[in-house]
Amino acid sequence: MFETLKVFLRNKKALIGLIIVLLYVAVAIFGPLLLNLDPMQRVGRPHQPPNPEELLGTTRMGRDVFAQLIYGTRTSLAVGFFAGIIIVLIGTVLGIAAGYFGGWIDEIVTFFTNVVLVIPQLPLLLVIAAFMGQTNPAVIAIIIGMTSWAWGARVTRSQTLTLRNREYILASELIGERPTRMIFVELLPNLLSIIGFNFIGSVTYTIITQATLEFLGLGNPMSVSWGTMLYHAQNASAISVGAWWEVLVPAVAVAGIGVGLSLLNFGVDEISNPRLRTLGTVAAAIKAQKKIDQQRLAEVKP
C-alpha cells in the first residue's frame, strides 16, 4: 500500500493533479464554514469590479462573486462525486455481470451498452432535463448518472473478460468457489484501477456536463453552482458590458478542476501502463552520470 503511494507520488502529473483536486475538496468542505456569508445576499452595487471589499467583484444582482464561487464549488463537486458514484456502480455491476457470466446476459448488456454509446449524450440529457422543468443539482446528478454509465460498463467488461481467462481464475473455479466469492475476492481487486479510472473520468464529465446544462438554463436558477453562475452572467450580458469577472471566475473554476482531475487520471494511466511513462527519471539519471564523468575527466587531465 505504502509502496503504491510512493510510485504514485513520484509521478509528477499525478502529484500536481492530486494537489489541485485536494485544494478544491478542501474549499468545498471548509470554505462555506469559514466564509459566513450568504451567496444570495445583496452586498453591494451591481457589477462592481474586484476590490478589497468584494474580492472578485459583484454580479449584476449585487451578489458577491467570491461567496458564490465558494458555495458553487461545494455544489458542483458534490454533484460530480454523487453522479460519479452512480456511474461507477452501474458500470461495474453491468460490466462484471456481462464479462463473468457471459452467454445471454453478456449479449443483452453489450447490446444496450453499444446503443447508449452511440446516442448523443448531451441532446438526450437536454431533452430529459427540459421535461423535468427546472432541475435541482441532485436531480441533475441522477440523470447524468443514469445516462452515462455505458463507457465504464464497456471497459469493465473487456477487462473482466481478459481476467476470466487467467489460470488463477480457472484454478479457483476448479476448487469450487461460489460466484459471489469469485467476483468479490478474485475479480474486484484486480479491477480496482479500471474502476478508479472510470470514477475520476466520470466526475470530470459530470462537472463539465452539469455546468453546461445549467448554463443553458436547465438548472434551478436559485441554486448556487458554477453552472448557474455562468447562466446568470450570460443573462446579464456580463461579457458585452465588460464585467469579465462574473464570467471568468466560474469558467476558471470549472477548467481548473477539469485539469486537476485529468492530470490525475493521466498519471494513473502512466503508472498502470509503464510504456506510457516518459522516462524522465532515467533521462535525469543519465544526465547526472554524464556530469560526474566529465568532472572525473577534468580531475584526471591536469
Partner: peptide
C-alpha cells in the same frame, strides 16, 4: 492538450468571445 480536453466548451467559447 490534457488541460484543453478537460475544459468545457462553454468556457473556451466564452473566453474566445471575450
Amino acid at each position: 492538450s490534457l488541460a484543453l480536453q478537460a475544459t468545457p466548451a462553454v468556457v473556451i467559447a466564452l473566453t474566445a468571445l471575450f
